[in-house]
Design a protein around this nucleic acid. Sequence first.
DNA 1: CATGAATGAGTGTTCATTCAT
DNA 2: AATGAATGAACACTCATTCAT
Lengths: 227, 227, 227, 227
Amino acid sequence: MKRTGPARAQVAKEELGDSFDRRSARAEIQRGRRRDAILRAASTLFSRQGYHSTSVADVIAAAGISRGTFYLYFDNKDSLFLELIEQFIQRIMDVVEVVDPSLPNPTGRIYDNVRRVVDVVFDNRELTVLVLREDVGLNPEVDEKLKRFYGFVRAMVEGALENGARVGLIREVNEPIVATALIGAIKEVFMHHLVVAADTEPARESVAESLLDFGLRGLLRVTTREE
Amino acid sequence: MKRTGPARAQVAKEELGDSFDRRSARAEIQRGRRRDAILRAASTLFSRQGYHSTSVADVIAAAGISRGTFYLYFDNKDSLFLELIEQFIQRIMDVVEVVDPSLPNPTGRIYDNVRRVVDVVFDNRELTVLVLREDVGLNPEVDEKLKRFYGFVRAMVEGALENGARVGLIREVNEPIVATALIGAIKEVFMHHLVVAADTEPARESVAESLLDFGLRGLLRVTTREE
Amino acid sequence: MKRTGPARAQVAKEELGDSFDRRSARAEIQRGRRRDAILRAASTLFSRQGYHSTSVADVIAAAGISRGTFYLYFDNKDSLFLELIEQFIQRIMDVVEVVDPSLPNPTGRIYDNVRRVVDVVFDNRELTVLVLREDVGLNPEVDEKLKRFYGFVRAMVEGALENGARVGLIREVNEPIVATALIGAIKEVFMHHLVVAADTEPARESVAESLLDFGLRGLLRVTTREE
Amino acid sequence: MKRTGPARAQVAKEELGDSFDRRSARAEIQRGRRRDAILRAASTLFSRQGYHSTSVADVIAAAGISRGTFYLYFDNKDSLFLELIEQFIQRIMDVVEVVDPSLPNPTGRIYDNVRRVVDVVFDNRELTVLVLREDVGLNPEVDEKLKRFYGFVRAMVEGALENGARVGLIREVNEPIVATALIGAIKEVFMHHLVVAADTEPARESVAESLLDFGLRGLLRVTTREE
DNA sequence: CATGAATGAGTGTTCATTCAT
DNA sequence: AATGAATGAACACTCATTCAT
């Protein structure tokens, strides 16, 4: 995605001394602030009303800018939306690390991952809702991005299952289906806390634990061996 | 939702002779057929392209009727959509029965419920996709309907968990979260079969079983006691 | 160019009798009238202000219709413009006939052609101005159409020169350049009468004669042999 | 047309010493250079893409200046365009001289005029294309300027015809129409060389000669007496 | 003088809904 | 009951122009 924004003219700075530098730097910061303001406003609106029900008019009103200014910072409505989705995906990708099953305490590692994802989710409530809500079919680029993201998520989950099974921790299951179920479970739990029970921030550890607990142990009253 | 359709034809039937009755009856049937044709066309389109990408023009083209006729049968695009959602909800509600934990074999009852829901889902693929895909924010009435439906589903699931726990079948869990997770898992698995692997109809029993299996037993390699 | 307009539903007419036929026919005529009204309004505006300075808003205001209606009859602004250009080209093509130099009195035939073109021009003043004014670069389809038209005109003129030379009527000249000059002369004379001296309708024969006279005989005081 | 530019710097020069004078002079020259750069860039763009398809953004990018700077040198886009047109008109006016028919060899004088115009045209290809392409309707001031210019050109040509006729060199013709035709022929031939056959610079004398030849002698195969 | 971020009126186009026939 | 022509509010987007720095 082309970022219309920071096309800074890096020409012949040395001759002009500090005043130019400082002014340019301030301008740059200003630009960033404006961009962020738009992104924040859009994030709120998109997460609340969805992509289609949010007009550019809504966004600029919420961001307190004019129509023209919007298109100074973003190529179009789609690219704004895409950027928000990319932001979310990036933040998730940044905290998830592949669990090597040969290292000790893999369940702990998995828990740490889940815990960090929970943090990202609750620190970016609107972004999360926006990504989980909106579905395929808006825009090929968005579709592609989400498809790749879910591909990654699924690979992580399937990998965890596979490794767990190889190590003997987890019983043999129909991996693709179980991965699907787990992903659905996670999405729904997040959406529940972010939308249905949006007013109360839950204890993050307990969310992470419940997810893992549910995924790993199921519901039957049994004796389980954990590490 | 107001049904524009069948209300009008019900007026003052008794005074007129059989000929009218018969004519009216035929007209009534004809009306129903038209309505159904529209609903079927819309169901296909909405499930394939989503609400926003499906125009009234698309619907009437697919249903083979004129613009004006559409508004003879439905108040507007929203109410058509709402009716499809209601249809789905109704069909699910019709087959789900509250499991009384004092009766024998509650797990079997739960399985029967799941099995019947699976049937409704695979017998109404488009309707299911349409409901599971489209989300909050289109229209307050739709939102309300879905909220109530999910409330019902959640109550069912939580009830089952509660009862299971009381009877000692199921261990104590964070019921609301686990209910949410279960619902999400089920939704995602359905969507997987209906969209990702749409070309192959899975064995319905095995879908029901793996959902239950996953939900009840989790993933850890353990010895479980089942009924 | 797709004509949005007369997409008449020719389905199962026979059963419905005259009333339908008549109604449909009237509707058809109405449609044609509306289309023509739009074309006329657009023709006036485009010829007066050019393509770019004429907005769709101008057209619909002049035609006395609403925005939506405009798009019922034309795909977009470009296709409206294109249709006007096509109209003009068609009317010219309809009256120009290739002159066979082996037949007697070729100069007379050429005069007849010029005379008929002059008629088309003065019977379609706005259309003519619109075509002569607007230039390359608006729209590839328009460009192509005009290019082909001028190609045809040039071929006609060059053909006439070539034949004239072969028959010995016309002296040898640099055909392409002279054809260019002749075309320019004709265009300018038309534009002069249609724009500069728009208030007075000139004697059409004298316009045709002057054009031919100028083209054939030039300005020097000489004795010429004519047929 | 108000020239925003050089007016301001002319104020109260006398009181200040040489240093200011020199600085001011340098500034003045710098100003002129910038103006010219903009005019050149605009000339290229306007002639290539036309007025409407050339944005101020295009101009400033090509001229290598900022948006604000543009408006320091020109009041607006229109006045930039107007100035280019004025430039062309001025250059033509500068080389055309009224032919006094009482002086010897008037045809030679006319040829000299045509020859000089041909020089201006081929030395200012972009400017010529820009003027000949763009037409009425952009802006009343531009319209007025062009109208006056064509009025002048027409007067020149009509005068030449009249004088030629009086002297007996040229036969009696419908002067206004023939003048118009001549002007159109010249314009079209220029455009042909500048646009259609833009890659090859023609022999300028031959262009001038064929224009005159065509205008004076026409096409019929005749014996002509020339001076 | 020079800059470029900001503006908002204006553009072409879409589409759910209405209503005369 | 059925039609489809007509509507106009709403939409995303552009671009000449202004002005604080």
